[in-house]
Nucleic acid binder design. Structure first.
Lengths: 343, 343
DNA sequence: AACTCCTACGTCAACGTTGACGTAACCACC
DNA sequence: GGTGGTTACGTCAACGTTGACGTAGGAGTT
């Protein structure tokens, strides 16, 4: 029943034969180029339709002078993470308007995997790549960039030159979050962060320090916990904070899953109405919790749009100096960040 | 500084010239085929490395007999939806092990867009597609399938024959959810559903009816609200339910966003501790709410894995009869579904 | 009438790669 | 020492398409 599967795909030659013209004329008609009479155009169109002809973009891009594959690569950390997914969607929307499709992959924050995926993409001759760089060294990225692949980094900047990137106001927004807590009277504000190899973690930590300084508070090392990769580690670390002699009265959690872990612990110890919490990165249903979770919200669609615009400009030959675009994040007050310290 | 951009990509010819062999021999070395001496292999490898040579997969697949592009298409409704994102990730993981990359797109539940994306994919000669079908007619899908493109549908089955699909136990799990509520003594159980054109909505509604029947309860039409596309509509519809003379004591919300909308309303009217709620589809933080939300959880990674396995089997020439795989969902009890009716 | 110019086609080769096939050199064996 | 087989290469054409260029015929100009 499935004879369609082994039927050869029709080619321009088949269309040309049926319409009694040359393949070159078919090419002209398919691509809407001038040099074909109205009657011939109709004949070719009809022949293509009746054969179910679909142009072969891979053959076309092999031969064409611009060599475009009309495909870009998107390499994020984990496509199932809501942040990454929203970002992918934003890039995809912008790409669609350019007639470009997106090859998507998850690097799982693994250098080897990132390198392999970059090679896979380059082997398919994508026109450019949008990358959320794996933490630590960026040798593979730089190498790929040096080969001439247009590249835009998102969320984290490059450690090498000549490459565009789009990030958010990590430092400023973190500082503002801390100041927001300090203004309520908090003096013992803890910092819980993701892996220190990540640039975003470092920036947010720096913002935290700036906030403390600006509020005239002194840093207590015991209140700083980093390298919390995943909600479970964050939950345990939060627990340890409340075993201190002088526990924090407010938490600044510098990443999505860290916020979730901290929330779990606060609930488990029934502290969620007494300890203030501000998280970096919004998440679904943050408003449905009790109290609602105050967060620093990144403009994810804005970041994705900007990244897509940059990559398409570069693909189109823009050679202006590299840009580091910073998309502002904003504090969303929902309650948890507005809890005053218990006297 | 960016001279790399306009430097031509090295080809097999360049490598061959440098290694002083024929292009065919380079091809053999690159593809690890026999017929090249150890010394020549080394020379070619070194030449390729020093030139930064990357094989051109598009040229290769054009010429090779199998014609594989080592790329599949994934066409979901909205890649930023957590369900779709998790599914994409599962497919991607499985694809990676086959050395296959994923072209991802969002159909936005729009027939035109779905058709355009299918054409884009077929133009790039993907080896197969995994599709979450847009509701209503499936003309474009059937047409694409008839052209011979290997295809697997997920979440919703095809309305045409000869095509594999992977769905979950929509009907059975919905029935079980209703029975679970009925066992607690609920007699007025409302149904809130997504668009009726969606097969999943219909199945879940059928399960709801089966559950009522099996529990010996009579259907009250006033307690059935459908075509709730989005949380806002769901919230309004839920509100209307509680304006009834005899409001429901339990809700079965048959989709993600519908659940969220219902939750909003319950909270707004402070009913969330008195009205039972079971939702179809899990969502992040459902366990963090108070009460935790009892849900029917689909095995999303399982569905994705199965879909990927099916598509790869078909691509590899499996011609066994089409499969409708059903991946079991399970009831996750968190509290909201365990609230007894107020006497 | 001779010329230029334009339009509507066609011919040919090439993009980077690999399948089919050829061949030279060497080894083994009767 | 001829036959057969194997190994290690090379040559050539083709995959589906398009850029470069050619050409025939008609219209317009001098």
């Amino acid at each position: 029943m499935d004879r369609a599967a082994d039927r050869r795909e029709p080619t321009m030659r088949d269309v040309a034969a049926l319409a009694k013209v040359s393949t070159k004329t078919v090419s002209r008609v398919i691509n809407g180029l001038p040099g074909a009479g109205a009657e011939v155009v109709d004949r070719v169109r009809e022949a293509a339709r009746s054969l179910g002809y679909r142009p072969n973009l891979t053959a076309s891009s092999l031969r064409r002078s611009d060599r475009r594959s009309a495909t870009i690569g998107v390499l994020f950390e984990d496509l199932s993470n809501p942040f990454d997914a929203a970002l992918l969607r934003a890039v995809e929307d912008r790409a669609r308007h350019a007639g470009v499709l997106v090859l998507a992959g998850s690097s799982e924050d693994d250098h080897t995997l990132q390198r392999e995926l970059l090679v896979s993409l380059s082997t398919r001759r994508v026109d450019g790549v949008v990358v959320m760089a794996v933490g630590g060294h960026q040798d593979a990225l730089q190498q790929e960039r040096d080969r001439g692949t247009p590249m835009v980094l998102v969320d984290r900047p490059p450690t090498f030159g000549g490459t565009d990137c789009v990030t958010t106001t990590n430092r400023d927004s973190s500082r503002d979050a801390v100041l927001h807590l300090a203004a309520l009277g908090h003096r013992d504000i803890a910092f819980l962060g993701d892996r220190r190899t990540l640039w975003t973690s470092q920036e947010r930590y720096t913002g935290y320090l700036e906030g403390l300084a600006q509020a005239g508070l002194t840093l207590r090392d015991a209140l700083v916990r980093t390298d919390l990769h995943g909600a479970d580690l964050a939950e345990a670390a939060t627990g340890a904070l409340f075993d201190l002699d002088r526990p924090p009265t407010a938490l600044f959690t510098a990443q999505n899953l860290v916020t979730v872990g901290a929330m779990r612990l606060l609930r488990a110890r029934d502290l969620h109405r007494r300890v203030a919490l501000i998280g970096f990165d919004d998440f679904p249903l943050a408003d449905m919790l009790d109290p609602g979770i105050t967060v620093v919200r990144q403009d994810v669609p804005g970041i994705g749009r900007k990244a897509a615009e940059l990559i398409f400009a570069r693909i189109d030959g823009d050679t202006s100096p590299p840009v580091h675009a910073v998309v502002p994040a904003s504090l969303v007050r929902r309650g948890s960040g507005e809890i005053a310290p218990v006297s």
